[in-house]
Design a binder for these strands. Structure first.
Lengths: 181, 181
DNA sequence: TTCACATTTCAATAATTTCCGAACGTTCGC
DNA sequence: GCGAACGTTCGGAAATTATTGAAATGTGAA
């Protein structure tokens, strides 16, 4: 990153990195990880760990571990520059691709296990019950869990669809849905 | 909640409460809050604070504060039973309504501010830059932030649409998106 | 191979979040 | 009014999560 950037740009960059970090909190994501990601997104060229360290004022180890996580998520790549021994890092430039990568990962880590475990709840609860009280409890349980399962199943299908669709599909779909309703 | 529920039902209930609590972590939500919510979802009748306390083995204060948050979110209601001085609590029974309530709240708390602040980033960065390096940085910044803004704007519209749509709309919408692609 | 530097790992520490429980306020029945 | 039951709040403890810093490991050039 050039060191000659203007004040306005520096400020706006900080604002963005900070914003992305704050958003991460809401989404259950480590703040520093999100800040590194933000930094990479707005950098014209790949960055070294040292540059990230200095810009965010965090330790070497912290940068290293969070970069590893980002790479595991699939949204950051390690690149190299000829004649330079250091590792450089970039993030996926295209917003839609980035969204798909994150969606794929969260689906795999959260949605799929959620559906599996909801089904397990239904299996484990069994079929019959004796007393009237218990029957009511049983019925409500099965009803609610089944509804949740169906609901998240819709999301599952939505995610699958979005995962192999073109950029812009979402926007188109939203417009169409608007018309229908 | 009846105390005569069978072992299988008790186990399945615990499984569900636990599952919901774990999911909450991924979504940046307090685990206990989610467990209380789960408990209310699978209860045929409203519960008292004391029942929640005992079931989840947590303190009175913890229950009280988390119920307050749940009520602020709008997904839990305080009800009363004639002849009983205690407060009873229920959650919205319908999954789609629950989804809409949460969506509305998250839109207000996260998406709207996000869009505002992304726009602010674009305003603050200004228009011109001098050096070649800076020009590149500037351009990339504006490009990326604009793309993100547009992307989240699509979500904003989607959310608005879903907020005043009928249950089942999402499922229909998913089918439509499938067709488009 | 050795050197110099780059990178990763991890135990210790710091920061943050969550939670308990005591103290307080309120309401109701007596 | 008084006491009992109920609900809320909040300071600090406990648990969890994030971060550092330094040692260990890896890597490429000569």
């Amino acid at each position: 990153m050039p060191e000659t950037v203007s004040n306005a740009l520096v400020t706006a960059r900080r604002e963005f990195v900070d914003l992305w970090g704050q958003m991460a909190n809401h989404w259950g994501i480590n703040r520093t990880m999100a800040q590194i990601h933000a930094l990479l997104m707005i950098s014209p060229e790949p960055l070294t760990a040292e540059q990230i360290m200095e810009d965010l004022q965090i330790s070497r180890g912290n940068v290293s571990m969070n970069l590893r996580d980002l790479i595991n998520w699939g949204i950051v790549r390690r690149t190299s520059i000829p004649g330079d021994r250091r590792d450089f890092f970039t993030t996926e430039a295209d917003v839609w691709s980035m969204f798909q990568i994150i969606l794929r990962e969260r689906k795999k880590r959260e949605l799929d296990p959620l559906l599996t475990r909801l089904d397990e709840c239904l299996v484990h609860v069994g079929k019959k019950s004796e007393t009237a009280d218990e029957k009511a409890s049983h019925e409500v349980f099965v009803k609610r869990v089944t509804e949740l399962r169906d609901f998240f199943n819709t999301f599952h299908r939505l995610a699958s669809t979005l995962l192999d669709s073109q950029p812009g599909s979402l926007a188109k779909a939203v417009k169409m849905i608007d018309k229908i309703m």
